[in-house]
Design a binder for these strands. Structure first.
Lengths: 223, 223
DNA sequence: TTGTCGGCCGATCGCCGACAA
DNA sequence: TTGTCGGCGATCGGCCGACAA
């Protein structure tokens, strides 16, 4: 996944350290968060934290859920032992050297899906700011102003959406194509979509953030 | 899976040897047919065939495809080494001692699905013989004669079908419920369904046989 | 006897403006 | 500005008899 798109999908609360920077690795925290706890030697897991150098960072996305995550390869600074570490998105090692490398070549906008966006007649209310700053300008002379957007997801798959400006009062909507997207990505109210535009090329991208579900939200809906 | 139901699903061309009978095990054939070739010691795989005794037979069904298969545990007769062997349905070891244990407590009928059965308006043409010999008799005094059949698949899941006798000329059809079954089992024209009735209890069962697809049939339809 | 077709009816999908928060 | 609602037209699923193989 392109790192800039990846960062826009992950959001600004996620900071990934750069290669060669130094971080503290917390074995305990890694074991608690990982679905498949890492195999660590007792020597490693007995330490509360270990100063490491970052060898490599890979920006990835889950094939099924579209959720972004990074694989960060660490090497202890006082030892030569090599570790593979899976770093869940939304968390980060405590960075010692933190470099902000924001070139802002991608502008993005995120919206939490309302029940109407996720459930009802297959439409999406586009906030005015998103339509103005992300989508190509409509021809407002036309009646109604309408265009078809081709938007790439993190896998490179292209989705088409009918973008129309209508209703009284006027508002921006995504209609045809939206419902298929929601169903395919299994989005529900509370999840977020992220629309992005590359400032240079004008290319559009769409990402997905799943809502953090508390146990209470998980009832019913077994399939 | 109940062995009698299993056998009806597999069809008469499949013969599974009984426990304690002796068979020849062909390592080469096993390796060629298995999707995950067995790990065999060179001593075993270098032999063309090995006389074995059958320790245990388990009748199973694939959770996704409903296809039946058996796990047969063998032990070489001249050695004490123990092997786990997956026996694909539709093939069999060459039986030395073959016992036919058919008590015929289940009567079955198989039909290859026509395009109309699989694709069109959600109906299934029930061959007269199947309706007469497998399904409970309809009340032909009613207009139209109709009943709801509750039929169990190999996993024990119950499916409901509306069985009606109508049209000119009259014929047996499965209507409501059939389409859901076809979609859930991902059946296409050329596949078969097997209807079974337990003579003693009258209980109904339904099984599925996938058509053997040549490479030419596999084009398109990627999902 | 049974495979396929066109007709037709009802359910669902999804686009729409109205309205209010 | 935008979330939700009811209306309604188009589409689709699926039940039907006709007809022919």
């Amino acid at each position: 996944v392109d790192p800039t798109i990846w960062k826009a999908c992950a959001g600004t609360s996620v900071q990934i350290p750069t290669v060669d920077s130094r971080v503290y690795y917390f074995p305990q925290g890694h074991a608690e968060q990982s679905s498949s706890p890492p195999l660590l030697s007792p020597l490693v897991s007995s330490q509360p934290f270990i100063l490491c150098r970052i060898l490599a960072v890979r920006f990835l996305a889950n094939t099924e859920t579209d959720e972004v995550f990074a694989k960060i390869r660490l090497v202890p600074i006082d030892r030569s032992r090599d570790l593979h570490v899976l770093q869940p998105s939304g968390t980060k090692p405590n960075c010692v050297g933190d470099e902000d490398d924001d070139d802002e070549e991608v502008v993005s906008f995120a919206k939490i899906l309302t029940p109407s966006d996720a459930n009802n007649g297959g439409g999406f209310s586009v906030p005015r700011f998103c339509a103005d700053s992300i989508f190509p300008p409509l021809n407002y002379a036309a009646e109604p102003p309408v265009q078809t957007l081709s938007i790439r997801d993190v896998h490179g798959m292209v989705w088409e959406f009918r973008h129309i400006y209508r209703g009284t009062p006027r508002r921006h909507l995504l209609t045809t194509g939206w419902s298929k997207f929601v169903n395919h990505k299994k989005l529900i109210a509370g999840d977020s979509v992220v629309f992005m535009r590359n400032r240079r090329t004008g290319e559009l991208f769409v990402g997905v953030r799943r809502a953090v579900r508390s146990n209470a939200d998980c009832g019913g809906r077994g399939d």
